[in-house]
């Protein structure tokens, strides 16, 4: 049987008295990009760093492509974009990329060609001879992305790949990931849930050091059985009761005071009976009857809404 892409068992990581990861058991298989998300303090960065081998687990095990992180056999098979690693000042970026390629096993000549290739991938050929401190934050980020694409890694771990990039460059990087996703598996850690929703086939949600969801994005955002509203004002008292009385409505979620959000879940009859449409119309009528004005309505829930909902502390 082929090795899992990634497997953790009983993974614990403590920082002093603080438990950042608590008994994380997770198995991921190769396939479409996988998002790693969670609120601040969820343990996302710690988990990502443990997967990369930057941090050692306090207890438990991690296997990446069937080997412990940073095992010699993984050299060249795993590409990593660390979030906050810096390049050496004063040394041209092409030289630094060539050095990393040499460490990855390329000959000197091949390493220079590989450095040029990945710089071209991130549209930074012109910056090859420049030192990193002379480049903008976004350009340095792209160079860091470039080093993760060197060689032909089977797995690419990207920590906040679009953070700090302007929209056009972020789109280019996302297109790059999309163009390569059939040849390798990406694990993308990001706070930008729109990017995750756009790029990833599945998502792992961490909260308070634990994996609380590991599902396909399509299943999670429930496109066909939910209506999400952005309201002009907070929902009036009793709106949830009124909406719950609508036929086929299974659950009503009101945003917290000030969030001005409303999600109405309903049974999706599917088929051709038009049940879903009838339910949606009935929900809109109920809202109108209650005098609720809305700014925006969408079918399903965004990943962002779902993550907020899933990781919201129980009141």
């Amino acid at each position: 049987m082929a090795d899992a892409l990634l497997e953790t068992k009983g993974l614990v990581r403590d920082f002093g008295d603080t438990r950042a990861l608590s008994n994380v058991d997770l198995t991921l298989e190769a396939g479409p990009p996988i998002g790693l998300v969670g609120p601040n303090g969820a343990g996302k960065t710690t988990f990502f760093s443990v997967l990369c081998g930057f941090l050692r687990p306090t207890s438990g095990t991690v296997q990446v492509l069937g080997r412990p992180p940073l095992h010699r056999d993984l050299n060249g098979r795993v590409g990593i974009l660390p979030q906050d690693a810096a390049f050496v000042k004063g040394v041209p970026v092409a030289s630094q990329l060539a050095m990393l390629a040499e460490l990855q096993g390329f000959s000197r000549k091949q390493a220079r060609a590989e450095a040029a290739r990945v710089l071209d991938m991130v549209l930074l050929t012109d910056a090859a001879s420049k030192a990193p401190e002379t480049l903008s934050h976004g350009m340095v980020k792209r160079i860091a992305i470039a080093q993760a694409f060197m060689g032909s890694p089977e797995l690419v771990l990207l920590d906040e790949p679009t953070a700090g990039l302007d929209p056009a460059t972020a789109t280019h990087i996302k297109n790059l990931i999309r163009s390569l996703e059939r040849e390798r598996t990406f694990i993308v850690s990001s706070h930008n849930l729109d990017d995750i929703e756009e790029l990833c086939g599945s998502v792992v949600i961490l909260d308070r050091g634990k994996v609380v969801e590991n599902r396909k994005v399509a299943d999670l955002v429930a496109r066909t059985s939910c209506l999400t509203f952005r309201l002009e004002a907070d929902a009036p008292v009793g709106l949830d009761t009124k909406l719950s009385a609508v036929a086929n409505v299974t659950r009503v979620e009101l945003g917290r005071p000030g969030e001005r959000k409303l999600a109405v879940h309903y049974r999706d009859g599917g088929g051709s009976d038009g049940g879903a449409n009838a339910t949606q119309i009935a929900v809109l009528q109920a809202l109108a009857a209650a005098g609720v004005a809305m700014l925006e309505m969408s079918r399903g829930q965004s990943l962002q809404d779902r993550v907020i909902e899933i990781t919201r502390p129980a009141s």
């Binding site: 990369c52 050496v88 990393l100 460490l103 860091a144």
Partner: peptide, 12 residues
């Protein structure tokens, strides 16, 4: 500077 994070995936 955490430059080591670029190195250790490639070298011990």
């Amino acid at each position: 500077t955490r430059h080591i994070r670029f190195l250790i995936p490639r070298v011990g």
